[in-house]
Amino acid sequence: MESSRARRGRRKLLYGALATVAVVGATAAGTVYVQARAHSGTSAVSSAATPSASEEASVKPVAQPTVDFDELLATAMGAVDIPEGVQVSVAVLDMTSGESASYGNGAFDTASIVKVDILAALLLQAQDAGRRLTAAEKSYATAMIENSDNASASELWRAIGEAQGLDAANERLGLTGTEGGDGMLWGLTQTTAADQLRLLQQVFGEDSELSEASRAYLRGLMGDIAVDQQWGVSAVADGSAWALKNGWLPRTATGLWDINSIGRVTVDGQTYLVAVLSDGNSTKPKGISLVETAVEAAVSVFG
Rank of each mutant, 00 (worst) to 15 (best):
E2R: 11
S4N: 09
R5H: 12
R5G: 04
A6F: 12
R7Q: 14
K12V: 13
Y15V: 14
A19M: 10
A19D: 13
V23G: 02
V24C: 02
T27V: 15
T31P: 01
Y33V: 11
Q35I: 05
Q35W: 10
G41I: 04
G41A: 11
T42C: 04
T42H: 13
S43G: 12
S43P: 03
A44K: 01
V45A: 13
A48G: 08
P51H: 07
P51A: 10
A53Y: 09
S54Q: 13
S58K: 07
P61Q: 10
P61V: 11
A63K: 10
P65H: 11
T66M: 06
T66V: 14
D68F: 03
D70E: 13
T75K: 11
A76T: 06
G78W: 08
A79K: 03
P83S: 09
G85H: 08
V86W: 07
V88D: 09
V90W: 08
V90D: 06
A91Q: 01
A91S: 15
L93Q: 11
M95F: 01
M95G: 02
E99M: 08
S100L: 02
S100K: 05
G104K: 01
G104Q: 02
N105D: 15
A107N: 12
F108L: 07
A111W: 04
V116D: 03
A120E: 03
L122F: 00
L124H: 00
Q125T: 06
A126C: 10
A136Q: 15
I145W: 01
E146K: 14
N150S: 11
E155D: 13
E155I: 00
R158K: 14
R158W: 15
R158V: 14
I160Q: 03
G161E: 09
G161R: 02
L166F: 03
A168W: 01
A169E: 04
N170Q: 13
N170F: 01
E171M: 06
R172T: 13
R172D: 08
T178N: 05
G183T: 08
M184Y: 11
W186N: 10
W186F: 13
Q196N: 14
L199H: 04
Q202K: 05
Q202C: 09
G205V: 04
S214W: 03
S214R: 02
R215F: 12
Y217G: 01
L218N: 05
R219S: 14
D224G: 00
D224W: 00
D224Y: 00
I225C: 05
I225V: 15
V227Q: 14
D228W: 13
W231C: 08
S234L: 04
A237M: 05
A241Q: 15
A241M: 09
K245M: 12
G247Q: 07
W248N: 03
L249Y: 13
T252N: 09
T252H: 01
A253I: 10
A253C: 03
G255R: 03
D258I: 12
D258W: 06
N260H: 15
I262C: 07
I262M: 07
G263H: 05
Q270I: 04
Y272M: 04
Y272E: 05
V274G: 05
A275M: 05
N281I: 04
S282L: 11
V291E: 02
T293W: 08
A294N: 06
A297R: 02
F302S: 02
